[in-house]
Amino acid sequence: MFVYEKKLQFPVKIKNPNPKYAQIIASQYGGPDGELGASLRYLSQRYAMPYDELKGLLTDIGVEELGHLEMVGTIMYQLTRNLSEEEIKKAGFDAYFVDHTTGVYPSSAAGVPFTAAYLQSKGDVITDLTENLAAEQKARTTYDNILRLVDDPDVREHIKFLREREIVHFQRFGEGLRLATDKLDEKNFYAFNPSFDKNCIK
C-alpha cells in the first residue's frame, strides 16, 4: 500500500507566476517522457521482476517518480496562480485555459492528453530495464530542453534537481541490468525469459 507524506521531496516556492513556463513544464507531468508515465511504467513492470534487488529498485524508483509528479504539479500550480485574462492571452496560455482553466491536467506541452501508449511493460526483465534506461535519458533531455527555455531561478533550481534524478536512476537501472545478466546464462542472456520461464531459475 501507499502512505502519503504531507511534504514534497524538494519544497517548491515560486515567487513569480508565468503561464508560458507552466505550459512548457506540463510535458513532464503528462507528456511522452513525463513523471506520470515513469511512475506507471516502473510500478507496473515490477511484477515481472525475477530478482529481489530489481523488485526493490522498481518499487523505490516508481514511488520516487510519484513524488516527482507531485513536484511538477506543484510547479504548474504555482506558476498559474493569480492570473488575469490579459496575462493568459499574452502568454499564449489561452489554449490550455479554455479546457482546464488553471487546473493541473496530464498532457504534453502541445496539449496531447496523457496516454499509456507512452510506456511499455513487456514482462521480460532485459527488455523492461532497457526501456527504462532510454526513458530516463529521454526525460533528462526534456529537462535539458526546459532549462534552455526557462530563466527564473526559482523554477530552474527544481528542474535541475529533477534532471539530476534522471541521471541517478539511469545509473541504478544500469546496475540492475548488469545484476540481472550476471544471473543469466553468460553465453546467451536470451536463452530463456526469467520473468516467464520460472523453472529455468536455479
Binding site: 511534504k7 524538494f10 519544497p11 516556492k13 534487488e53 529498485l57 520516487e64 541504478r172
Partner: peptide, 28 residues
C-alpha cells in the same frame, strides 16, 4: 523563508541523503 520552511528544507535534505543511500543499497 519562515521557520517552518527553513526546517522543512533541512528535513528534506536529510531525507534525500537517506533516500540516495537507500537506492544505492538496492543494487549494492
Amino acid at each position: 523563508m519562515n521557520n517552518r520552511e527553513a526546517m522543512l528544507k533541512k528535513l528534506s535534505a536529510h531525507q534525500f541523503t537517506l533516500w540516495e543511500m537507500h537506492l544505492y543499497l538496492d543494487t549494492h
